[in-house]
Amino acid sequence: MPRPVDASPQTLVVLAALLDAPDAWHYGYDLSRRLRLRSGTLYPILVRLAERGCLETRWVEAERPGRPPRHTYRLTVAGRALARSRLAATAPVRRPAVEGSGA
């Protein structure tokens, strides 16, 4: 049976991490370090989730002046539903080691 869309192991790990702190805003670099995903893996997943309306994005000013603004992410309501269904369908899923959530 073909694997459903957005059910790759990497996507599931991202969804699980975002769902662990659904109200928090997550930084890309933090997610990358926590989930041990390279940017070239993580960002296309985020792009895809955002384009499907599963991910909300927001720009925030950098803490230190002179630095560019940072992009932050959190699941939308649809994204949370998708995450729950995907994670439930593929359980037991390797849950990411969440060391403090989001922004």
Binding site: Y27, G28, R70
Partner: peptide, 16 residues
Amino acid sequence: SRRPWVDALGGELELV
């Protein structure tokens, strides 16, 4: 439509 995502990578670059 995807350029903001490249900017997003740039926004994190200084932290790496």
